[in-house]
Nucleic acid binder design. Structure first.
Lengths: 183, 183
DNA sequence: TGTACATCAGTGAACGCGCGTTCACTGATGTAC
DNA sequence: TGTACATCAGTGAACGCGCGTTCACTGATGTAC
């Protein structure tokens, strides 16, 4: 049956939320269109009224889940709290709402141009956010430190999730945190 | 037709090499058993004489491609040359023989116990190799620096491959290299 | 050393299941009068 | 404001293709004598 305009917008949002959660949990390939729609409370047939293909959904869901656009500089304490949370066992184990770079990064590198564009925008923003809290005398030095910090954080969570030993996993998170060039 | 014992061993090696290359290029999911066998110069029917399942092949191929076991400490210059190569555009663009952590890391985190065990052994060995060249007064400080360095390297290549802008991609590699806590 | 035969790695057709995608149909929405 | 009707989001069955896996068969290997 037809549905109100507001419901259509809401359904689209629910599809994107469902997709973003499932993709993080299982990766792009191991999630079916039918599962995404079920998670949104709809049936699979309605999918192609919202998106042209599964590949288009992937790009849209990632863009939807990633913070985009500029925002005012956040206080140093906010950045440091984010960093601590990011390199915590809790974030490592949170597969359904965790960072998309650490959960989907290597798959995303093989993704569509739209997907990579959305993720590139997120990387730029992260570098800007971190730059304000990074060590360094000059703006270039701060930017360099921000990039190095973000690389290390993403890599640490990837490695901490692969490793099958809890002590080593936590050691990776803690050692990376300690070496971060942030204030 | 039956085949000599030497040929069987050689075929198994070719299957593993073919799988390791294709998995790196496209990820575990987008490679078919038939493609792996074709890459090894065989037909798909022979696959199940060598491996119990595709999942078993994944673990075996990664274990085969990853350096395993202890080896004598390598000179500092060797480690630094590896690091420079790892964070180079050439390695970033080399999808067929590159590091498996940067090409398959987020997929591997969802993989089988056997796969994760093989990758964990490789992480331990990398930390030991890097420890010898790392900054720090004590053994613990060196180990911590080695872990932070490896995390940053893996993360940097993941991000450098996602980003759709060549200048930003190279900046990620260079900034991470410059901040590495290695001697 | 030579011969007969059992073994078994490889071949290629086939199976069956799952998934992305399509489509005829339904019925609530929202517009024209 | 109320009514008739066109629109169109959602439903669920169906399609078709691809992929992991199986299997009867082939013929070279390698062993027993």
């Amino acid at each position: 049956m037809k549905v109100s305009k507001e419901a259509v917008v809401e359904h689209r949002r629910q599809i994107l939320d469902s997709a973003a959660r499932l993709f993080r949990e299982r990766g792009f390939e191991r999630v079916t269109v039918a599962e995404v729609m079920q998670g949104a409370g709809l049936t699979h047939g309605a999918f192609y009224g919202h998106f042209a293909s599964k590949e288009a959904l992937i790009a849209a869901a990632v863009a939807h889940a990633l913070p985009a656009g500029k925002r005012p500089a956040q206080p140093r304490a906010t950045t440091l709290a984010f960093v601590d949370g990011y390199l915590s066992p809790g974030h490592r184990d949170d597969r359904s709402s965790c960072c998309m770079f650490s959960s989907l990064g290597t798959e995303a590198a093989r993704g569509s141009a739209d997907l990579r564009q959305a993720m590139t925008a997120s990387v730029r923003r992260r570098i800007e956010d971190f730059g304000a809290a990074a060590q360094g005398e000059t703006a270039e030095a701060k930017r360099q430190a921000a990039i190095a910090a973000w690389s290390a954080m993403v890599g640490a969570v990837v490695l901490a999730r692969i490793v099958d030993n809890e002590a080593l996993s936590q050691e990776i998170l803690a050692a990376t945190r300690a070496a971060l060039p942030l204030g």
